[in-house]
Design a protein around this nucleic acid. Structure first.
Lengths: 241, 241
DNA sequence: TCACATACTTACACTAAGTGCAAGTTTGCA
DNA sequence: TGCAAACTTGCACTTAGTGTAAGTATGTGA
C-alpha cells in the first residue's frame, strides 16, 4: 500500500490471480486510489497538517480535483485510508484466529501480529502528523469506530447469535479502547521511534492492556501495575472480583 | 464540548469559581449561545439532518452568519453542544463520588444518575436525529473522546501520579466504551422511548456493562448469554468490586 | 453624566470544500 | 469492430469557514 508509483505502474499486470477479476479497470482504480492517498501523505509530511488543499493533492497525484472526490469524500478520508489499511489488516488477523479462542486473546494476538515496523510505521507516522489537527483526529476516531463495528460482527459470528448485544458492544468497544490506549501511550513515550526496543514496548503494552481488561482492571495494588506478566489467558481467574 | 469558542474562557476573572458577576455581557453571550444551539436543534427536528445550513440557523436565531461562527466552529459543533452538556453533567457526577470508591463504581454511579428523562432526553433525541449523518456522528464520537480524556485526568488525580498511564488510558477508554455500548444498545432496542420502563432498561444496561467490565468479560457461559431484551445478568450490583 | 476603552456584532470579500451535470475518454464485451 | 458501461474531467454552483474593518453595546473611571 501507499506506493509512490502512479497509474501506469500496475498497467502490465493483467493475468495475476487476485480475488474477483482484477480487470484493467480495477487495477487502474486501485492504482489511482493509492496514488491519491500517498500524494496526500506526502503533502502531510512536507507541508504539515492544514497547510495543503485537495487541489494540491489532486495535482500531485496527477488527477483532477473532481476525480479526487470520486475516490474520497474529503481530504481527511484520503489520509485516514492509511489507518483503515492498518485496521483492516488487524481485522484480517483477528478473523484468522481459532474460533474457540477467547475474544480477548484473539484481539491481543491480532494486534501483536501488527507490531512490526512494516505495519506500524504508517500508522505511527499518521499518529504523529495528526496530533494537532482536529479534523484529522476525528477521522482517526472514525477509523477506530469502524473497527469496533467489525469486531462486533466478527465476535457475533464466533459466539453465536444468542449472545447479548450489550456483551458484544461492550466487549468490542473495550478491546478497541485498550488497543488504542496501548498505541497512544506507546506513542506518547516513544514518538515515531520504530526500533526493535520501541516495538517491544508496544507489544508489551498491548499484552498488558488486554491483560488488564481480562482482569477486570483489578485495583492497581496488585500485579496489574505491570500487567499480568504470566498469561494473556483471559479465562477467568475468579468469576467475580 | 471543546467546540466552545475561545472567547468565553476568560469569563471568570476574580478569585471565585462561582458564577458570580453575571454581567450583562456574559448574560447576553450565554443567551445568544443557547439561542443558536436551540435554533440548530429545532431545525434538525423539523428539516432532518443535512437539510439546513448555518445561514438557516443564524437567521432562525436572529444573528448573522458570522456571529454563528463566533460561537461555534461548525454546524455540527452547535448540535454537539447538547451531547457536551450531557457529558459534562456526567463528569460532574463522577467527580462528586468519594475518592476511595473504585473508578468503575464511580463511573457506574455517575452514569446512573443521568438515566432520568430530563438528562437523557436531549441525548436520546440527538442520538435518533444523528444516526444517518456522518459529520454529526463524528462530532458525537469526539464528545465521547473528550469525556474519556476528562476521566483519565480525574482518575489520575484520584489514583495518584504513580499509576501507569496505560492503566489509566485503558481503564478510562473501556469505561466510556461500556457507557457508550449501553446507550447504543438501549437506543437500538427502545429508540427514543423515555418511559420509566425504558429508562429502567437503560439503567440496567449501564449496570450490566460495568459489571461485565469489572468481571473481565468472563466467557459468556453465564448470565450474559441472554437475548437483547432481558438481561438482568448482574444481580450482584451492590456487593461488587 | 460623560468620555473612553473594550467587547461584541455585522457586512464584505475571499479561499476552499463538496456536488451535480454533461461532455469526453477508456475499457469490457459481443 | 462497434456499442455500452465505466471512468475522468471541466464547469458552475452552493456552502463552510476565516480575516478584516467598521459599527454598536457595555463596563469603568473621572
Amino acid at each position: 500500500m501507499t506506493q509512490t508509483s502512479s497509474q501506469e505502474a500496475a498497467a502490465e499486470v493483467s493475468t495475476t490471480a487476485e480475488p474477483a477479476t482484477p480487470s484493467r479497470r480495477e487495477l487502474n482504480k486501485a492504482a489511482t486510489r493509492s496514488s491519491i492517498a500517498s500524494a496526500a501523505l506526502d503533502l502531510l509530511r512536507s507541508n504539515g497538517s492544514g497547510n495543503f488543499t485537495v487541489e494540491d493533492i489532486a495535482a500531485s497525484a496527477g488527477v483532477s480535483r473532481r476525480t479526487f472526490f470520486n475516490y474520497f469524500p474529503s481530504l481527511e478520508a484520503a489520509l485516514a485510508s492509511v489507518a483503515d489499511g492498518f485496521m483492516d489488516h488487524a481485522l484480517e488477523q483477528f478473523r484468522l484466529r481459532p474460533a474457540d479462542e477467547s475474544i480477548l486473546e484473539s484481539a491481543q494476538a491480532a494486534l501483536m501480529a501488527l507490531a512490526d515496523p512494516m505495519s506500524v510505521a504508517p500508522m505511527a507516522e499518521l499518529f504523529s502528523l495528526t496530533q494537532d489537527n482536529r479534523q484529522l483526529a476525528r477521522s482517526e476516531l472514525e477509523a477506530w469506530e469502524h473497527c469496533t463495528e467489525q469486531i462486533i460482527d466478527a465476535a457475533r459470528g464466533r459466539l453465536g447469535t444468542g449472545i447479548s448485544e450489550l456483551y458484544l458492544h461492550a466487549l468490542a468497544g473495550s478491546v478497541i479502547s485498550c488497543g488504542k490506549a496501548a498505541m497512544t501511550v506507546w506513542f506518547a513515550e516513544h514518538g515515531p521511534d520504530l526500533s526493535p526496543t520501541s516495538l517491544a514496548v508496544l507489544r508489551q503494552h498491548l499484552i498488558d492492556a488486554m491483560g488488564l481488561l481480562g482482569a477486570g482492571f483489578a485495583p492497581p495494588s496488585d500485579a496489574s501495575l505491570h500487567g499480568p506478566a504470566a498469561s494473556p489467558s483471559v479465562s477467568t481467574t475468579k468469576d467475580r472480583f
